[in-house]
């Protein structure tokens, strides 16, 4: 009995092993997925409409199986007195800033992954776990992730977080644009719950048009800037505000994609074997000089 079951186990293991090997070869053959679809979706965050109710924080935790507590407990506004960053316990957070032009109301600002069009995390991930999907979301495959945390270092918005407090199987955590929900035709959890629809979900190109028309219709309400339209080559999440984005702790980023800089340096250095060739040439030169010097010394001695 035991022998038979052992044989079965070995058979099964072999089959699974072969399957896994086959699967991994197929995935490793494919380069990191980096699709930039014309119809990719995005979210326009109108910070002039946001009231800072933090319902999005609750909905996000609820949708991602994180401990959320009850919704009423989010009414406490004391938490807004300190600035927070998204982490492994909260994939999105709302921060509050002093009022902008034309209003006495504070500015409330939801922070989460921007879902870049040219994501640095996808470029930095050495195992190709990260990918930009057709619907605009930047997601990662937990099974492939080896926990190197290069994505955290690469992100210009410092978004990916790591479960440092977990000894076993710690995971990279960040907003996944509710990839599972949108696949089922649902709205992202935060967009769905927002009482004032400060978060508008739609095709990115459409959102840019809407943002422009809002600025045009109400120039007193907004600064003439859509953050994320061009920043780091464009992002799926974009912001409108009544105040300069620098004052809202947005990093001052250029229009070039974030991976562009690192990739061009790396690729530039290693192109056409320049570094190895020049290194060997240098070493050869040193050898030649030392050898020549020795020869001269010996000649002088004689």
């Amino acid at each position: 009995m035991s022998g038979k079951s052992r044989r079965d186990f070995l058979k099964k293991s072999a089959l699974i092993g072969a399957g896994v090997a086959g699967f991994s070869t197929t995935t490793s053959k494919a380069a990191p997925k980096n699709i930039l679809s014309e119809d990719r979706m995005g979210v326009l965050v109108d910070t002039t409409a946001c009231v800072g109710c933090r319902n999005c924080e609750w909905a996000c935790k609820d949708a991602h199986g994180l401990p959320a507590g009850n919704l009423e407990s989010y009414e406490d506004r004391k938490i807004l007195e300190t600035k927070r960053r998204p982490d492994h316990t909260a994939l999105t957070v709302v921060n509050e800033y002093p009022h902008g032009k034309n209003s006495n109301l504070p500015i409330d600002l939801k922070v989460q992954c921007m879902h870049c069009d040219h994501p640095a995390c996808v470029s930095a991930c050495i195992v190709g776990a990260f990918s930009k999907q057709e619907n605009g979301s930047v997601i990662w495959d937990t099974d492939m992730c080896i926990g190197c945390r290069y994505c955290m270092a690469a992100c210009p918005f410092q978004i990916p977080a790591f479960e440092y407090d977990k000894a076993l199987n710690p995971l990279i955590m960040k907003c996944d644009f509710c990839f599972e929900r949108t696949k089922e035709g649902k709205l992202p959890a935060c967009v769905s719950i927002c009482p004032v629809e400060a978060l508008t979900y739609g095709p990115r190109t459409e959102l840019i048009k809407i943002a422009r028309s809002r600025i045009k219709r109400n120039p007193a309400r907004y600064v003439d800037h859509i953050f994320g339209e061009y920043e780091v080559g464009g992002t799926s999440w974009m912001y409108l505000a009544s105040k300069d984005f620098k004052e809202l702790d947005f990093p001052n980023l250029g229009k070039n994609p974030a991976p562009g800089v690192s990739e061009s340096i790396q690729h530039g250095i290693f192109a056409y074997f320049v570094p190895p060739v020049s290194l060997y040439a240098l070493l050869g030169g040193i050898m030649w000089i030392t050898k020549r010097r020795k020869e001269l010394e010996e000649e002088g001695k004689i």
């Binding site: 409409a49 927002c194 009482p195 004032v196 629809e197 400060a198 508008t200 979900y201 959102l207 809407i210």
Partner: peptide
């Protein structure tokens, strides 16, 4: 989606 939905508008 150029206008807020009814819930958004009310709030």
């Amino acid at each position: 989606v150029s206008l807020p939905d009814l819930k958004g508008a009310y709030h």
